[in-house]
Design a protein around this nucleic acid. Structure first.
Lengths: 205, 205
DNA sequence: GGGGCTGGTAGACAGTGTCTACTCGCCCGG
DNA sequence: CCGGGCGAGTAGACACTGTCTACCAGCCCC
């Protein structure tokens, strides 16, 4: 394994594929250091606290999600199809990487950066990592229903749609929605498309 | 302070108002025992593990939420108004008691009961605590749009609506939505009503 | 009246995050 | 050229956590 990259990046890498494979319970500071091959005090040279390291890992998750968005939208032509692909990508990412998704929206991580400056010089706050993704969503929503005049502003629709997708991901991932969905074999797709149809109007137009 | 009630209930009570006031970080097993006035080994006689105690506290949260639902719907006449009140109550509860809401949907608590029997004899699983709330939602949704025939089944609409409210609560509570909402002073109400309108049709009919 | 049993205590144990002292190697200035 | 500082990693201490085990005080019931 290459030791040449800086320890800071290596710790984040180790943390990322630790949370991908083992889940959020294995993300202890000492465990990350152990798997990175350094002593338990070494991460402190790069991250002032355990939460700071977790925030850096979560930021990597947002970057990963943004990549999925662009590649998912590449195969779609109309804005509506792009929104559909984006929604599926969002929920798919949350279900495929439950631990990372949980980490990305943990309250204590988001709050720990509320007071005090950004975690590092040039490092964006964790909460602001959602901004580019949301602006992409707003742009697609405006282009998708340009003719409607009586609808709420695009930012509101986009926020509601985002919240809907987020809730689907969260509840489905926690097993609450499958349990509830008719007591039979539950399927995710109708709920996602129902959410898209509800906020954007029916697909066929 | 009354010592007559069983320790099991007292531990849950202490945990509830600990998570209400201090947040989820103070919910350590030893801390709960300390505030209940017993030794740190005492809870083990009533809960096999720390997670079991947390699950019991979360179940209390679901019961509390159900109470809010019924009292919120009492002041509304039409099903639509009841749904609006219910949505506001859901999001309001989540924002008012962030720690409890976070606890109620923690993945590890929900998963820890996936295998093995229910936590106690007669105790429902934590995940199933959402079932009565959801069935209430389904009933309201069916009564609210009985005449529409081309819509998806009520269970799907109810699930999508629930997910939408859940996502609004989660994202707003984490500070992501206020940050994103037009970069100005953000308001919650338009997003909630947008969600209701989207899934149930416009309010004015 | 004595034997379980229930429910609580006290201590041990491994593990955690944080903090502090220490050390090693490298660079830079005189 | 070489010695002092300094960044980066090590090792250990500390308080704290959750779990486990031994012990023990009441209490009920045969």
């Amino acid at each position: 394994m290459e030791q040449d990259s800086s320890l800071r990046e290596r710790l984040i890498d180790v943390g990322v594929d630790l949370v991908m494979t083992e889940g959020t319970a294995s993300l202890g500071l000492r465990e990350i250091a152990r798997r990175a091959g350094v002593s338990h005090g070494a991460p402190r040279r790069h991250f002032p606290t355990h939460h700071a390291l977790l925030s850096a890992i979560a930021r990597r998750g947002f970057a990963d999600l943004a990549g999925r968005f662009t590649s998912a939208m590449a195969g779609a032509a109309t804005p509506r199809e792009q929104l559909t692909a984006l929604g599926r990508a969002y929920v798919g990412y949350a279900l495929e990487h439950r631990g990372m998704f949980e980490l990305m929206f943990r309250h204590d991580l988001l709050d720990s950066e509320r007071h005090g400056g950004p975690p590092g010089p040039g490092q964006p706050r964790l909460r602001e990592s959602t901004l580019p993704l949301f602006e992409l969503l707003v742009g697609l929503v405006t282009r998708c229903r340009a003719e409607a005049e009586d609808a709420p502003p695009a930012a509101v629709t986009a926020a509601a749609l985002w919240a809907n997708l987020h809730g689907v991901a969260q509840l489905w991932g926690s097993g609450s929605l499958p349990l509830v969905h008719g007591h039979g074999p539950a399927r995710l797709d109708p709920i996602v498309t129902a959410a898209l149809d509800a906020h954007l109007g029916p697909a066929a137009r």
